[in-house]
């Protein structure tokens, strides 16, 4: 049997909203350590890796490792029925072909239960090596979302150039071109508003902005986003999920034809 309970069910809903545009269905790997998921988008240029550690749940029980094929599209629809302060319990009974989502209101006066049929999915798994990136930009996730949305107006690609002083996002297309430059924060009251850059080597990489915009669907999970970059290496775009885990998106850079 598998059972995991989250007092703040909305966190789980935000995780699903963060994933579902990039991947519509995925295999959840459940073990005693927690829940992990790795999935690629259909064009194989982007990858998402999710980790939710068992100690981040109020209660967590996993008697044996399970691989659960789940439609994220359907799960998202079910989670929309959840109240914003509801507690969420996810359960898979032994020998069952369904996942049960139970939602309980904070005053314990309302209790809802939904079942979703599990799917048989072919899953591919890519080995992602631990990488020492040349540059890690940390910035407010809302600012990153806004920049990606704005850049998409100008073109299909965004070039991210990072030096020790700042980071510049630029795009050009048929209508024109533009760029936004953020300087490293020197003095901020709130850490979540800061832009900080750890740099070993300056980088300039170009990415499809459409994918960056899909990654930004996970921005509500975290005040800050980490962008880890090295030349000729996929970007790693990371949003923390509280202190229980993270969503990491990987995107292959574009190269000149």
């Amino acid at each position: 049997m598998f059972e995991a309970r989250l007092a703040q069910g909305s966190i789980f809903a935000k995780v699903i909203e963060g994933l579902r545009e990039l991947v519509t269905e995925a295999t959840w790997e459940c073990s005693g350590n927690g829940i992990t998921l790795q999935a690629m988008d259909s064009s194989h240029v982007a990858l998402v890796s999710l980790v939710l550690r068992s100690d981040g749940f109020e209660t967590y029980r996993c008697d044996r490792n399970m691989s659960l094929g789940i439609s994220l599209t359907s799960m998202s629809k079910v989670l929309k029925m959840m109240g914003k302060d509801d507690t969420l319990t996810i359960r898979v009974n032994d020998d069952s072909d369904a996942i049960v989502l139970s939602m309980e209101s904070q005053n314990q006066e309302e209790f809802a239960e939904y079942e979703l049929r599990l799917m048989d999915l072919d899953s591919e798994h890519l080995g992602i090596p631990d990488t020492d990136y040349s540059c890690v930009v940390k910035m407010p996730s809302t600012k990153f979302s806004r920049i990606c949305r704005d850049m998409a107006i100008l073109g299909d690609s965004v070039t991210i150039c990072s030096t020790k002083d700042g980071v510049k996002f630029g795009a050009k297309g048929d209508v024109g071109q533009g760029s936004i430059r953020l300087n490293q924060s020197t003095n901020v009251d709130k850490e979540e508003d800061a832009v900080s850059i750890e740099l070993r080597e300056a980088v300039a990489l170009t990415f499809a902005v459409r994918y960056l915009n899909m990654f930004c669907k996970a921005a509500p999970l975290s005040n800050q986003v980490n962008l880890s970059m090295s030349e000729d290496t996929p970007l790693m775009c990371e949003f923390k999920v509280g202190d229980m885990g993270h969503i990491r998106f990987y995107l292959a850079p574009k190269i000149e034809d």
């Binding site: 690629m40 064009s43 240029v45 890519l126 080995g127 190269i255 000149e256 034809d257």
Partner: peptide, 14 residues
């Protein structure tokens, strides 16, 4: 023109 490479170019299947 810019080509979008696939991730398999960088990471191996396990």
């Amino acid at each position: 023109n810019q080509f979008q490479l696939e991730l398999q170019t960088y990471y191996t299947h396990t």
